[in-house]
Write a protein that binds this DNA or RNA. Structure first.
Lengths: 342, 342
DNA sequence: TATATTTGCTTAAACGTTTAAGCAAATATA
DNA sequence: TATATTTGCTTAAACGTTTAAGCAAATATA
């Protein structure tokens, strides 16, 4: 019973005295195989506990039915939700995914790409590390003719498919809301300017200030790595100003958490003295005290759309790279940290 | 330049006018190939941008260098940290991992196993879904002779390698701590009894009460799915008792969060009126107000040990399944939710 | 009834790699 | 100098599957 050797198509063929080719076709319901043979083949396959060898069929067919996913980390609700939705959509069509993490490191990202290409993935869905500026490795994917879809952190210059939210509008929503709450000196702890999404958030912030005829103060616009630790540091930096802000918009929830901790520790009242807004709608924004106002990034939608975009690619045999940029509307979730009851 | 067809070993061979076999050996630094040839092969490989075809070599060698990982979800710090550490250890040895999520569903878990077997993984590292009771599918892995390593949620009856923490002792640590803080009526919102780790926590709780000569009250021992929502429900249930508890030990941090929310909403003082202890040391336990006392599950260590256990398996050619059960010591992290300053 | 088409298979080759077996030339040993 | 060993390759087959090409038998069409 516990025959150690794995059953192959040949084993089934020899039991039934037909050719391996006929077995392969029967298993795939080829129209040129009789129902009688199909039934017999399937019965024997089941009896012998046959499991198709994916490596062999992938090699022969020239496609692996694997899709690579690269994210900065899985330990964030946004990314894990995107991944889950990519997986669901692709599983339906017989694809499996290989998840890799860059840990925000460019070097790790490159090695991830090598790994995925080596594994012969049929496509790559990725969100870039903070560090990534050089796009040579991504060009490598493109030059191999493998579909590449970026989400969240993409690089427009690469000329590939992209799915993300409207970062510029998000900033506008946030500033509009803070102004409406009576804030006059709104600071922005933003991400790295060279990353497009953070750059868009900064532009949105600047333009929104202009719209509301508020002056743009250099000291109130700070670049950050957006970790919790850096959020603490940059908040401390803002509090050291002679002329403190009355609101802080932070381009990431983890950094917003750090800022919140500093304010709580110093007994500064949120939102009365300083209002706080984060970005990403991580679950903990609704857990902490006070709860943090944030932007919903539509992770589920982004995941599904990324998967669908990939499937579109493989459907067309022609590799005509029709660009597909999808920008979703942002949504502001107002919570206690910015709600003055106005 | 942008030659679409991928470079193979044959291409390199024909450039140098040697056999493909020689190229293969040269690329693997076979001692029977001259240094001159090796250099030439490597140069041409680089020039032609040769990438080895993993599918072909895996098929020929009978191993894929892929390891499957099954977790209930990636969206939890514990699991994502375990995964990251498995990946690090295995990458060093040339293995890549395929991550799949069961979403706590037995059905999804079975389909994950099928997927991984289909992909010809060389081993599987898994933590079981809450629902899983039937172990037929896991037997399937064992019967194929593929190494199986379980962590956190394992099933002793399966007779496979397992890495986890000492759940029984954890409960003892918690009850000791709460008694020391002056608590007399300690409730336990536990996980499903049929899952061994939760069963062990329940046993530890019961025995610790005995040790401290505290009576075991049926109403204070509740079974839960341990989601945030269920944590809210079960806490509400406890508060409806005529004789309320003065401490609640909850077998999962997410459920502990739900309980904390209920207590905060009702203005019940933590830890003065009711002390609270969670399990898992999720990062948010240090973010919420008050911060939640919890048990550190040593996720990094568990990940590394799981990977190492797998590597041990593939090292020995003999499939002698020597059982390897590693139980790590638990560690209690005391925070505000249970610290009465005693 | 004679020819054309369809059905249901088989044969053979291929995907790209690795490896056992073998062989000539170069070098070492007696 | 004659034999043994080592070096550096080649040849051929294999991993398990899929698929193009082909062919005989069965069925459809004229």
């Amino acid at each position: 019973m516990s025959n150690n050797k794995k059953t192959t198509i040949k084993d089934i063929a020899s039991v039934l005295n037909i050719s391996p080719a006929a077995v392969s076709k029967a298993l795939h319901d080829d129209s040129r195989i009789s129902d009688k043979t199909k039934e017999a083949v399937k019965k024997v396959a089941k009896d012998l506990n046959y499991q198709p060898n994916h490596l062999a069929s992938a090699l022969r067919k020239g496609k692996s039915n694997l899709v690579g996913v690269i994210v900065p980390r899985t330990n964030s609700n946004f990314f894990s939700s995107v991944i889950q939705n990519i997986e669901e959509e692709l599983n339906k069509k017989g694809y499996n995914i290989i998840i890799t993490q860059s840990n925000e490191s460019y070097k790790k990202e490159c090695s991830n790409i090598d790994t995925l290409l080596f594994t012969q993935v049929d496509g790559i869905i990725a969100s870039m590390a903070n560090e990534t500026v050089d796009l040579e490795y991504y060009e490598k994917i493109k030059s191999k003719g493998i579909p590449l879809i970026l989400f969240d952190r993409g690089e427009n210059d690469l000329n590939v498919d992209y799915i993300g939210i409207n970062d510029y509008d998000s900033s506008q929503l946030i500033v509009d809301h803070l102004v409406q709450q009576g804030c006059k000196r709104i600071a922005h702890i933003g991400g790295y300017k060279h990353t497009r999404i953070f750059n868009n958030r900064i532009r949105g912030y600047i333009d929104a200030l202009k719209k509301h005829k508020l002056p743009l103060e250099e000291a109130l616009l700070i670049e950050s790595s957006l970790t919790t630790e850096d959020g603490r540091d940059k908040m401390t930096q803002l509090l050291a100003l002679k002329n403190k802000p009355d609101a802080v918009y932070i381009a990431g929830d983890y950094a917003a958490l750090g800022a919140l901790q500093v304010l709580n520790e110093l007994g500064i009242k949120i939102p009365e003295e300083i209002a706080l807004v984060g970005f990403g709608n991580e679950p903990f924004t609704a857990m902490v005290t006070p709860t943090i106002t944030s932007i919903n990034q539509h992770s589920a939608k982004i995941g599904k759309l990324a998967a669908k975009t990939f499937l579109e690619h493989v459907k067309k045999t022609v590799v005509k790279q029709q660009l597909n940029k999808i920008i979703l509307d942002a949504e502001l979730i107002v919570r206690d940290s910015s709600n003055r009851g106005v």
